[in-house]
Amino acid sequence: MSEKKAPGSVSKLLNASWLRPFLLLVMIVVGWDLAIRIFNIPAYQIPAPGDVVKVLYTDWPELLSQSWPTTYATLLGFLASAVFGIPIAMLIAGSRTVESYVYPLLVFSQSIPKVAIAPLFVVWFGFGIVPKIIAAFLLGFFPVVVSAVQGFKSVDPDMVDLARAMKGSRLRVFCAVNLPHALPAIFSGLKVSVTLAVVGAVVGEFVGSNSGIGYVLQRSIGTFDLPTMFAALVILALLGVILFWLVDRIERFAIPWHVSQRADVFIGS
């Protein structure tokens, strides 16, 4: 390439890694718009990107206020899956007895479709935020447990022996060796979990709620208001990306020593 004299700032900007997903997104949107024009797809099947943007712009205050309940439910469900998932993973990894009792049941419970049992939570807890949190928790819980179990189990037994030979108490050995060792695996579980928690919260809103993005989705499907529905999907995707990015930031702060964090690569979205 003989573009030595090319304006540095523009080419640098085009090469910036944070810009790449946006470039791809722009290409997809353009492809979407072209497909609608070329194949003459009617607006009641797929709305044009322009219409979706218009709805996003005009209904922004409404959409924003509806996204808060979804965000709360997602965050609380996600936190619950971390708070319950990590200790349960500790128990499963630490004791064969617990593992043999709990783990198969946990896998079994994952095969139950959450969408099917979500109405049950509405029956139990009413139309408030609780059913949404539970749905978010149920979806986010499993990946945390599976990853954390794997993290706790992959500690080098020699390393634990070494710490034990230093006469460290069980708790001290755990905090100094096992827990930090499991953190990278736990974080990868948390990242999967946070995006699934968004799905869970929406499922909760689908079956019985009068607020939230899930509610907007369902209402707009009912009235064939496709631009609003797509706008709601965009908001959900944004919510997922932002929450994922937050967990990623926390991960970088918590495990700066890990291989995945050594090179300054962009994993954010």
């Binding site: 080098d156 020699d158 390393m159 022996d161 070494l162 710490a163 034990r164 030979a165 230093m166 006469k167 460290g168 001290r172 050995v173 100094a176 060796v177 930090p180 495990i255 020593w257 890990h258």
Partner: peptide
């Protein structure tokens, strides 16, 4: 484990999240 012993394995088994001086001080922490 009686504590008055230092062990070296084939692999260095340093904790990757501790710097060298903190790794050396690990028995003291334990």
């Amino acid at each position: 484990p009686h504590g008055d012993v230092g062990i070296v394995f084939q692999n260095a088994l340093l904790l990757p999240w501790r710097n060298i001086i903190n790794n050396v001080l690990m028995p003291i922490d334990m």
